[in-house]
Simulated assay, not measured.
Amino acid sequence: MKNNNKWTVRDVITTVLLTVGLILIQLVINMVCMVNDFASMVLSVGITMLLCAPVYFLMVSRVHKRFVSLIYMTILGLVFLIMGNWYLLPYYMLVGVICEAILWKNGWESKKKMTLSWTVASLLYNGVNLLPLWFFWDTYETFALQSGMEQSYIDSFVRYYSSPGWLAFIILFTTVCGFVGSLIGGRLIGKHFKKAGVL
């Protein structure tokens, strides 16, 4: 039986590689969805959480240790820091801490706890768009314009995320997608990952 506290080099490599995979999935979805404002601002985060859920389940189940979620979220935050959105690093670290609290007592052995962890993460993931609008607008606008975003895109961003109706839909859609992705991840763990010897 594995020691649930002691990390190995293999655990570190697995966590980093799967984290890179999760971030690449997110970047690809963001790039594809950028062709349409509605897809980018309303659907992209939900689609990301849906498709990333099975990889997250695999990572947590395979490493079988505490702090996997925190490491993933910290690395994700560092990517945003490098891109110029410094405020997302402490935010995603906080999300990681919340996920760890949910999984703390051998949560990697419970599909229900992993589902709750990823569903909560999906809900909080909307902070990537809400934080700049509410607290760091000047930083975000400067970053957006320097990245080549058109003013029309920025105006659409403000319109969607300042509308109570659209905001409620986006948050609900993202959370539901995370939950559905978790159900898929749980089924894959039981039916495919274990049989294939991945776990």
Rank of each mutant, 00 (worst) to 15 (best):
K111A: 10
K111H: 11
K112C: 13
M114Q: 10
T115G: 08
T115V: 09
T115I: 08
L116V: 15
L116R: 12
L116Y: 10
L116F: 11
S117T: 13
S117A: 15
S117Y: 03
S117W: 06
S117L: 03
W118E: 09
V120W: 02
V120D: 01
V120M: 05
V120S: 03
V120Y: 00
V120K: 04
V120T: 12
A121D: 01
S122E: 02
L123K: 08
L123C: 06
L123I: 12
L123N: 06
L123S: 12
L124H: 01
Y125V: 15
Y125L: 14
Y125A: 15
Y125E: 09
N126A: 06
N126C: 12
N126Y: 05
G127N: 03
G127K: 02
V128W: 00
V128F: 02
L130P: 07
L130K: 07
L131I: 08
L131D: 04
P132V: 01
P132F: 10
L133Q: 10
L133H: 09
L133K: 02
L133R: 03
L133M: 14
L133Y: 10
L133G: 07
L133F: 04
L133W: 05
L133C: 12
W134M: 14
W134K: 09
W134R: 09
W134S: 08
W134N: 09
F135L: 08
F135T: 03
F136C: 07
F136I: 04
F136R: 08
D138G: 14
D138A: 15
D138E: 15
T139R: 14
Y140R: 04
E141Y: 12
E141M: 14
E141P: 01
E141R: 14
E141W: 10
T142F: 13
T142P: 06
F143L: 13
F143M: 15
L145Y: 09
Q146Y: 11
Q146E: 11
Q146T: 12
Q146F: 09
Q146A: 15
Q146H: 11
S147K: 15
G148S: 10
E150K: 14
Q151G: 13
Q151L: 11
S152T: 15
S152F: 13
S152P: 05
S152G: 08
S152A: 15
Y153P: 01
Y153G: 06
I154Y: 08
D155G: 07
D155S: 11
D155R: 01
S156N: 14
S156V: 11
S156E: 12
S156L: 11
V158R: 12
V158P: 06
Y160I: 08
Y161W: 09
S162L: 09
S162W: 04
S162C: 10
S163N: 13
P164W: 02
G165N: 03
W166T: 11
L167T: 13
L167Q: 05
L167N: 02
L167M: 10
L167S: 05
A168K: 03
F169M: 05
F169T: 03
I170W: 00
I171S: 04
I171P: 01
I171L: 04
F173L: 01
F173R: 02
F173K: 01
T174N: 10
T175R: 02
T175Y: 07
V176A: 07
V176R: 06
C177G: 07
C177F: 08
G178F: 00
G178V: 02
F179P: 00
F179N: 01
V180K: 01
V180D: 04
G181P: 00
G181A: 07
S182R: 00
S182Q: 04
L183M: 11
L183N: 05
I184L: 08
I184F: 03
G186D: 03
G186R: 06
